[in-house]
Design a protein around this nucleic acid. Structure first.
Lengths: 143, 143
DNA sequence: GTCAGTGCAAACCCTTTGCAGAAAG
DNA sequence: CTTTCTGCAAAGGGTTTGCACTGAC
């Protein structure tokens, strides 16, 4: 585990600057919510998190900002459920368990899956990311 | 490559029976379109494929049928793009390239990725599937 | 006659967009 | 001032649903 959680306000702002994201007030609020702990949250959850106390950020801004963060590499988009996108503040290489019964998403340490070397990529392309998702479901209750 | 393409009408019907899917007229049409070749098609593409000549199946039936096929293990759902689900007639273990520029999805032979042993699953769960997606993008034109 | 399957249209829900107003420097 | 960012509401687009009709046995 390389990344530290939670990150202080100034650490979040530093990180944003590093990634070339202008740290406006709303963006910092959203980033702080994301980097409060390792987690996997949907845009809607981010919206509630940020506006828990009082309305600080609008829905449009949350969506726009999360898209921006993802493009800039500040967070990772995890696509495992066709109905919504998860955002993952941990950007170091790792994989995921996805519980199809509960909708829960969990980290898998990078080292615990051995991916050997990649197969030859299609002509004229370069690898951008490798997503490994282990779909699990709750075992029937034992007895 | 274990699976054979294309599959004849009777092969498709046999396959459906094997998987416990009642082979009605519309379902057979949809299955034949899917099993015509190894491919990755969205629900909307299936709709056009099936109704190419004349309207045979409604949109609702296509969606319902693809969902049924996926639940019964006749096809595999591939979730790589938050805006749509791809359906893959090849159910033997294999992985995917996803070209984020073109939206193109390609098979990767199972053997060309070495997945070693799985990490310990979360308590009370069992593995259902492992999805490996290699996201690629077009290389900048060389010169 | 019964029950599964189908079709149509409307409803849904997450996400994106257009545009006017606000904020930053 | 000029540029960037934000908020609101409406639009968008893939998918699901409700319900009446059809068809197979």
């Amino acid at each position: 585990m390389i990344d530290k959680y939670p990150k202080s306000r100034s650490e979040v702002i530093d990180l944003m600057r590093t990634k070339g994201v202008n740290p406006t007030q709303q963006r910092v609020e959203i980033a702080q919510a994301l980097f409060a702990q390792p987690q996997h949250v949907s845009a809607d959850q981010v919206l509630s998190l940020v506006n828990k106390q009082r309305n600080i950020v609008s829905k449009a801004t949350v969506y726009n900002t999360l898209g921006l963060f993802a493009r800039k590499g500040l967070v990772r988009e995890v696509i495992v459920d066709p109905t919504k996108v998860f955002y993952d503040p941990t950007t170091s290489p790792h994989h995921h368990f996805y519980n199809v019964d509960t909708g829960e998403l969990m980290d898998v340490e990078h080292g615990s899956i051995n991916l050997g070397e990649l197969p030859p990529l299609p002509e004229g392309t370069q690898a951008e990311a490798i997503d490994v998702v282990i779909r699990v479901r709750n075992s029937p209750a034992a007895f």
